Simulated scan of single mutants.
Amino acid sequence: MNEETTDATEEHPLEEQLRLAREEIVALTAARDFERDQALRAIAEAQNTRARLEREKSDAIAYAAAAFARDMLVVADNLERALAALPAPGDEALKSVVAGLEAVQREMLQVFERHGITRVETVGLPLDPMSHQAMVEVESDSEPGTVVAELQAGYRMKDRLLRPALVSVARKREEAA
């Protein structure tokens, strides 16, 4: 067998060289393809990283004040409660205090609006677990699952929820037996 291989190589040295050259070309082509694939993957990864960093940067700029806005929601809630708790103004001094507090509230809501902070819509809408937090179910003539009362306002900052609205949700009235 060894003699036959030697004889075939000696008889056709050019064919053997061609075979070896083809094998080398195939190996080099595979290596080139592998390196090209690795380079393309590295370029794609760099582009993805750049895009992700740009997105994170723009999000950080857009939502930098979110923590401050959440803290200010407590102030807005307390101002709303104070206005609701005041008796109907009888004398002029109380009327001016109420008017002043209402002006402060309007200004605060305008500042919220300028910064993309909006109140979550609630009453009369179906419960949306992405915006509402159901606190109580109450018997109602409304469609079951409909928000019937707002216990605490919810707010969004642009497209992100700062705080869900705390709501009461309708349930079907129970039939008397």
Rank of each mutant, 00 (worst) to 15 (best):
Q47K: 09
Q47E: 03
N48R: 10
N48S: 05
A51P: 00
A51C: 01
A51F: 07
E54Y: 05
E54H: 00
R55L: 10
K57G: 07
S58M: 12
S58V: 12
S58D: 11
I61R: 11
I61G: 07
I61T: 11
A62Q: 08
Y63F: 14
A65E: 02
A65Q: 07
A66Q: 10
D71W: 01
L73F: 03
V75G: 04
A76Q: 11
D77I: 14
D77W: 13
N78C: 11
N78E: 15
L79N: 01
R81C: 00
A82P: 02
L83A: 12
A85Q: 15
A85W: 15
A85Y: 15
A88L: 00
P89W: 02
G90N: 14
G90E: 15
D91A: 11
A93D: 12
A93M: 14
L94F: 10
L94H: 14
K95E: 12
K95H: 11
K95A: 10
G100Y: 02
L101D: 04
L101C: 11
V104P: 06
Q105Y: 08
R106S: 12
R106V: 08
E107D: 14
M108F: 12
M108D: 05
M108I: 12
V111I: 15
V111Y: 03
H115R: 05
G116F: 04
T118E: 07
V120L: 04
L125M: 04
P126C: 05
P126G: 08
P126N: 09
L127R: 00
D128F: 04
P129E: 10
P129I: 03
P129D: 08
M130V: 09
H132T: 10
Q133P: 07
A134D: 05
A134W: 01
M135H: 13
E137V: 01
E137D: 12
V138F: 00
V138I: 14
E139C: 08
D141Y: 01
D141N: 02
D141A: 06
D141E: 06
V147R: 09
V148F: 03
A149T: 09
